[in-house]
Design a protein around this nucleic acid. Structure first.
Lengths: 138, 138
DNA sequence: GGACAAGATGCGAAAGATTTTCAGTTTTCC
DNA sequence: GGAAAACTGAAAATCTTTCGCATCTTGTCC
């Protein structure tokens, strides 16, 4: 139940939060922008402001419930935190996103950071390209 | 000479373009935001608007002279295109940027894209962490 | 169940980054 | 040298995200 997750995150259980979390969980898309979530709320006749959507998503991020990603498109997208870190393959035409995980790459990253004496906090690997469906179209 | 590069990019040789390209080449930093370039112009008493800086940088990008990167900090940074693709290690504290190139990672990316039938156009790998200098500070 | 304080929300305004508009100017090309 | 095409600065417009603040809810205590 959403309520539990919110409570455990140390946040009060309020209608907007439950609603937003539920949308993230039920919507087919794994990655949604604040705007996407807002539109979905509107289509469900919910009286929730865009500012609240941002606020809630930011809180969820802080609580570790979701991750914020900045693909090169101007806006941030949020995805439910599945525990496992992973990287993304993004279609530059239709926006489709495929997640993947590659241990080899992870390992190399650690090594490279170590060589430069960096202490890794996070990383982001995004491969942009055309998905199978979009390669045909022009 | 900057003039040649601009001409070869199919752009007319104008004062703002020459000036901006020259700043990118001479400034110590490899990565500059539009704002950085603008400030540099101001400090040289150049009458060039911020809009022009954006326009010119975008044209340079289209012409392949520079690359635009979106690190997770709100604004885009531009760097001269050195021909070689490379990835970045960014300090989340001081903003320092170290470039690196890792063939193994590149190879894995290609393979992963192929597995998902994606046609790679571009990719971006950014590792965020603390640089050696910032690890000591708290 | 009711009162309260802390915390949330909604709305409009604001901020920050980037883009567009527009009228005037500069380049290019012949 | 002159016309067409491309370019420019300034201001206005966009777009995404955040803030200020008055109002409403939630969680807690009696």
């Amino acid at each position: 139940m959403e309520n539990e997750q919110i409570k455990q995150a140390g946040l009060k259980v309020t209608a907007p939060r439950v609603k937003i979390l539920s949308i993230l969980e039920r919507s087919g898309k794994r990655h949604m922008s604040a705007e996407d979530v807002y539109k979905e709320l509107l289509s469900q006749d919910e009286e929730i402001g865009l500012a609240t959507v941002y606020r809630v998503l930011t809180q969820f991020e802080g609580a570790g419930l979701v991750c914020r990603r900045h693909f090169e498109s101007g806006q941030s997208v949020f995805e439910l935190n599945s525990g496992e870190h992973h990287d993304h393959l993004v279609c530059i035409k239709c926006g489709a996103v495929v997640e993947f995980l590659d241990p080899t790459i992870e390992t190399r990253q650690k090594r490279i950071a170590a060589e430069h004496h960096f202490k890794i906090e996070d990383h982001s690997l995004v491969v942009y390209g055309l998905c199978p469906e979009c390669q045909g179209k022009r």
